[in-house]
Amino acid sequence: MSTPRLIEQKFLDYKTSSGFWLYLMTDCVLFASLFATYAVLHAAIAGGPSASDIFELPMALTETIILLTSSFTCGLALLALRHNNLKQLIVWLGVTYILGVSFLTIELSEFGSLIQAGHSWQQSAFLSAFFTLVGTHGLHITVGLLWLLVIVGVLFKRGITPKVKRQLMLFGLFWHFLDLVWIFIFTVVYLMGVAA
C-alpha cells in the first residue's frame, strides 16, 4: 500500500473510532437514564416481589463471569488481529460468540422463569424498570452478536482487509463497553438489590 493511502486509512481509522467512541458515550447517558429510573422506582413494588425476593446471586455471578471472560477473549482476538493471524482471530471470535450466546441464554431463562412465576414487567414499576434496564443491555448484546456474525462472515470471504480491521476495532470497543455497563447492572441491580 502506498504511503498516502496508508495515511488516509489511518485517518479513517481515527475518525471512525472517535465517532464510535462518542456514540458509546451517548449510549452511557441512555443507560444512565434507565439506571436513574430504576433507582427511583426500585422500591415501588406495588405489593409484588422485591429485589431480594426474586434475584439469585449465583446466577448473576455466573453471567458476570461469562461476560467478563468474553470481554477478555475479545481482547485476545484483537491481539491476534494485530499479528494478522487469521486462524487465531477466528478462534477467539468464536469463543467470544459462544460466551455471548450463553450469557444471553441465561438472561432470557431468568426472564422466562420470572414471567412464568407471574412476575412480569406488568406487575410493578420496579419490575418494569428491571426488565427495561437489563433488557436494554441484552438487546445491545444481541446486536453485538449479530454484528460479530457478519464480521466473521466477511473474514471468511475476504480475509483481513483494512475495512474489516476497522469494524473489529469498533466491535472491540462495543463489547468492552457492554461489559462495563454490566458491572454496574450487577452491582446496582443484583448485589444492592439483595443487600438492601
Binding site: 470481554s71 468492552h176 461489559d179 462495563l180 458491572i183 454496574f184 450487577f186 452491582t187 446496582v188 448485589l191 444492592m192 443487600a195
Partner: peptide, 14 residues
C-alpha cells in the same frame, strides 16, 4: 463499599 468496588473495576477495565 460495593459501589466503590464497581468504580474501581470500571477504572481497571478502562
Amino acid at each position: 463499599v460495593i459501589g466503590g468496588l464497581a468504580l474501581v473495576q470500571m477504572l481497571v477495565q478502562l
